[in-house]
Nucleic acid binder design. Structure first.
Length: 374
DNA sequence: CTCGACCACG
C-alpha cells in the first residue's frame, strides 16, 4: 500500500491498524503506524485513537498523552472514543485522579458527552479498586437516568462480585438484569460458573451450564477452562483431563490457558513428568507457550526442589524471547530459599532487578522467610 | 477506520 500511487487513503490504512489492534498486537500497530510515513498519509481521529489505545494496553500512558497532544497540534477534535480510551488507560494504571480529570474535560467540553462505554469504563475502574459498592451505585444511577446500562456493564459487576465470592449478590444482579430485559451471554454465565465453582458449588455450576444451553448460549473455551481449573484446584486431575477430552470431542480446542491449568494440576501433585508432557503437547499443537506456562512448570520443579531443571527452564524461556516477570522470579527465589541455597536466592534477587523486574511485597516476604528459617 | 465485560503461575 505504501508503494501504490496514488497512495491509499488514511482510512484504508487505519482500517488495517484497527484490525491488528483487535488482535491485540499493539506493538505491531505502533510500528506499522511509524512505517506509514505519517506526514504523507496523514492521520485522522480514528488513527490517533487506535494509537492511544495501543499505548494504553502497553502501559505506556506517557506516550498515550503525547498522542493526545497531537490532537490539539493538528486541530483535531477528540471524540467520545478518544476520551473513553484515555479514561480506560488511566484506570488500567490505577491513576484514578487523571481518569477523573479526563472525564471532567469531556463533560466541560460540551460537544462530546459520556456514553454507556464511558460509564462502563468507570464501573470497571471501581471494580478494579475493589469498590463494588461504588460500581453498583453508578449502575443504579444509570438505570434511573437516560444512559441505560447494557450487558457489558452488568457483566463487569457480576464478574467482580463473583471474584469477591459474593456469588449471591451476583446472582441477584443477574436476575435484576434479565428483569430489565438485558439478556445474558456466554461471558455472564462463565463469570457466574467461576463464582459458584470457587465456593465449591458443583451442583450449582451444572445447573448454570444446563440453563445456559437451554437458552442456546454455549460454553466456550473459557467456560471449560474454568471447569478444568476448578477441578485441578480440587485435586481432581482425572476429571479435569476428562473435561479437556470432552472439549476436544465438541471441537472446542483447549488453549494455552486450559493446558496451563492442567499442568499446574500435575505440578501441585508433584507429577512434573506429566506436566512436562502437557507442555510438549502444547508445543506440538503449535499453541503459544507464554510466561505463565513457563512459570507454572518452573513452580512444579521448584516445589520438588529440582532447582537445576527450574533454572534450565528460566534460561530457555529467555532464549525464546519471553521475559520472566516478578512472579517467575518469586517462584525461583522461594525455591532456592526452601532448599537452603540463600546465595542463589540472592543472586536471582539481584538478577531480577538488573532485568527491570521489580521485587514486590511477596518477593521480600519470601526472602525474609528464607533468611529467618536459615 | 476508533472505546468498555469472561480462563492459567508466586
Amino acid at each position: 500500500m505504501l508503494q501504490m500511487r496514488p497512495l491509499p487513503s488514511v482510512v484504508r490504512f487505519t482500517k488495517i491498524l484497527g484490525k491488528v489492534a483487535k488482535l491485540k498486537h499493539y506493538s505491531a500497530v505502533i510500528s506499522l503506524y511509524n512505517q506509514m510515513g505519517v506526514s504523507r498519509i496523514g492521520h485522522d481521529v480514528c488513527t490517533l485513537t487506535i494509537l492511544i489505545n495501543c499505548y494504553c494496553h502497553l502501559n505506556q500512558m506517557g506516550l498515550s498523552l503525547s498522542v493526545w497532544g497531537k490532537f490539539f497540534k493538528l486541530g483535531l477534535e477528540p471524540n467520545v472514543f478518544t476520551f473513553n480510551t484515555l479514561i480506560n488507560g488511566f484506570l488500567l494504571e490505577n491513576r484514578v485522579v487523571q481518569a477523573a480529570g479526563i472525564f471532567n474535560k469531556m463533560i466541560a467540553g460540551g460537544n462530546c458527552q459520556p456514553n454507556v462505554v464511558t460509564y462502563g469504563t468507570l464501573v470497571k475502574g471501581f471494580c478494579m479498586k475493589g469498590n463494588n459498592r461504588a460500581a453498583i451505585q453508578l449502575l443504579k444511577k444509570m438505570e434511573e437516568g437516560a444512559c441505560k446500562p447494557d450487558l457489558v456493564v452488568y457483566n463487569t459487576i457480576i464478574d467482580s462480585l463473583c471474584k469477591d465470592t459474593l456469588v449471591d449478590d451476583a446472582l441477584n444482579l443477574f436476575s435484576e438484569m434479565m428483569c430489565k430485559g438485558v439478556a445474558p451471554n456466554v461471558i455472564t454465565y462463565t463469570s457466574l460458573i467461576h463464582g459458584v465453582c470457587k465456593l465449591g458449588g458443583w451442583k450449582e455450576a451444572i445447573r448454570l451450564l444446563n440453563e445456559m444451553v437451554s437458552k442456546n448460549i454455549y460454553p466456550n473455551v473459557r467456560t471449560f477452562s474454568v471447569l478444568v481449573d476448578t477441578l485441578c484446584k480440587e485435586g481432581m486431575a482425572v476429571e479435569a483431563e476428562g473435561v479437556v477430552e470432552m472439549m476436544i470431542e465438541r471441537d472446542i480446542q483447549p488453549d494455552t490457558v486450559t493446558y496451563s491449568s492442567l499442568m499446574d494440576c500435575f505440578c501441585l501433585r508433584g507429577e512434573t513428568g506429566k506436566a512436562k508432557k502437557i507442555f510438549g503437547l502444547m508445543l506440538s499443537k503449535g499453541l503459544m507457550v507464554n510466561v505463565v506456562s513457563y512459570s507454572t512448570l518452573i513452580n512444579g520443579y521448584c516445589k520438588r526442589k529440582m532447582m537445576d531443571e527450574a533454572m534450565m527452564l528460566l534460561r530457555e524461556m529467555s532464549r525464546k524471547g519471553l521475559v520472566p516477570n516478578t512472579v517467575t522470579y518469586n517462584i525461583l527465589v522461594d525455591g532456592y530459599c526452601k532448599v537452603g541455597k540463600l546465595g542463589d536466592a540472592q543472586k536471582l534477587f539481584s538478577e531480577m532487578q538488573a532485568y527491570g523486574q521489580l521485587p514486590d511485597v511477596q518477593t521480600y516476604a519470601i526472602l525474609l522467610d528464607g533468611l529467618c528459617k536459615n
